[in-house]
Amino acid sequence: MKVPVAPPRRLVEVEIDGRSVRVPEGSTILQACRAEGIETPTICYAENLTPVNVCRVCVVEVEGARALVPACSRTVEPGMKVRTDTERVRRSRRLVLEFLASSVDLSLAPDLHRWQEVYEAHPERFGALMEPAAEGERDGREPGRHVPVEPGTAETVAQPVKIDNDLYVRDYARCVLCYRCVEACGDDAQGTYAIAVAGRGFDARISTEFAVPLPESACVYCGNCIGVCPTGALMFKTEHDLRREGRWDEARQTVTTTVCPYCGVGCNLELHVQDGEIVKVTSPADHDVTSGHLCIKGRFGFTFTRA
């Protein structure tokens, strides 16, 4: 069988934290760090999406570079000298975590809690958190103008949750603007482009055109945005409701991998079951068929098993 193989990849030698490391050409610094067992925090990075390097929590110091560089997207070059443990790196990571924790509700992002501890982040030093914005207020903000908050308070993205359909909710008070949902909805998987980043600066937000409700948008409810959201801003309605009722309990959940019973593509599904009910459906990001992405039927079409 003549299956073309990719051209052979050479190994590149780089230095990370003083250690000599050999990784395949084209690897990112992040991949090299992970291969070396060097823990590197990430937020916007996901293995099934193109790196957008916007959160900047993975920054490292590269000798010769004026600014720090994002490990998730910078590819290694021969002889590159990388440091992941300098004061500059630690300070930037701490500040990024403080910036997010002081402006976004991270209560459903356990990884980020851990990283805040590791980097000794103190988000409270930026002042008392602002009251949540009125419904729709942030959606109407115009680029190039803003009203400063009262001195002593810290501006946040707090706002009411958006519930406009039966399948999933959007709680943008939890949104770190990592672009993952936009990528999954657009170029990296679904190609639907129902949502995009709108507005500018701190008022940038994930939005449909003119912030119309999802049922009026191009959304096809594949839920691939939920699948990649790292902070719980996008969530199955089932999970949202169970959480509100205080019944969501991951400790009591099992996850079973099976194959979708609908069309003939053969997508792998991970069924999250609690108390004999399917409460959430995901797909493994590393599976060749789906790369972690599903359609509306695979993602939501399972309530029949509870009938």
Binding site: T256, T257, T258, V259, C260, G264, G266, L271, I278, T305
Partner: peptide, 26 residues
């Protein structure tokens, strides 16, 4: 039982890939 959700076995997809289905629910 629902084949893909309540029982074990295999299915084959459109690229001739045989994959396992597994029981998640009784």
């Amino acid at each position: 039982a629902v084949a893909a959700v309540e029982s074990e076995g295999t299915v084959t997809n459109s690229e001739r890939r045989v994959q396992r289905v597994r029981k998640a629910l009784d």
